[in-house]
Amino acid sequence: MLEITDLYQTFGSRVAVDHLSVTVDKGEIVGLVGRNGAGKTTTMRCVMGIVRPEGGEVRWSGHPVELADRLRFGYMPEERGLYPQMAVLDQLRYFARLHGLDSSSAVTEAQRWIDLLDLKGREQDRIVALSHGNQQRVQLAVALVHQPELVVLDEPFSGLDPSAVDTLSDLLRTQAADGKAILFSSHQLDLVERLCDRVVILELGRVLAAGTLAELRSRVPMRLRVKVDAPDDWVAALKGVRVLHADGDGAVLGLDTDADPQAILRAAINAGPVEHFGFESGGLVELYRELVAA
């Protein structure tokens, strides 16, 4: 298990990570979510030993992380970290060797990942000659070629087309099913919702919310979507009801605990023909917006 406890890091006068604590267990996919500057990348760099944190601790299997542990971690930085003039196969072999694989195992594993990630036939191509998507596949292969126990991926889905996103998602699920602990960051909340077992929402280096998706969704109150063929000003007279947003499918209403759905229905009917009246559960996007706005 990866345990990040009370992590603290500043850069100049800016607090990048502010007493952050996160755990990632084997077989678990944990998503770090937050806007730019929330502390996601710094947290990952602290895990990988690239940045030595000013406070707090990063532990793996119960002890502080050392170089020997990091050799069993796989890392994919946000901006691709590959040698542009080096061939695909050579690159994978090199990084596999650096992580402790012997020469023949490095070749075998490199070829296996080339096949798995649909890079067959591109072994001798230089990285600079590959498309963005293929470069991303090679970067992922570098992170996984040495069979790591913990995989840390910073924005792995950025710039990928939908089919590549599906491929990567399936791959991560497979790796988690194999017992790997996976920590990744993303701006794409719908992806995070689909993929992660637990989510940690960061803002200004602090944890705003953390938990399973079910736990996080329960924090978002139920919403009522009402489509009435009339202006929305009929809502203003209702107690404990407010318009969250409106779109072509009607108005989404936020309800306080004392709001009466029957009264809302009567008011809607009095306002005009009701085309839709139904409850919706809040998602990660709504929760994120609420927490960040608070």
Binding site: L67, R70, P77, G81, L82, Y83, F95, L98, V142
Partner: peptide, 17 residues
């Protein structure tokens, strides 16, 4: 400089001193 600006250094420093 190339390793730094291409972020290859980050991947390397995760495994080597």
């Amino acid at each position: 400089a190339q390793e730094k600006t291409s972020r290859t250094a980050e991947v390397l420093l995760a495994a080597v001193r």
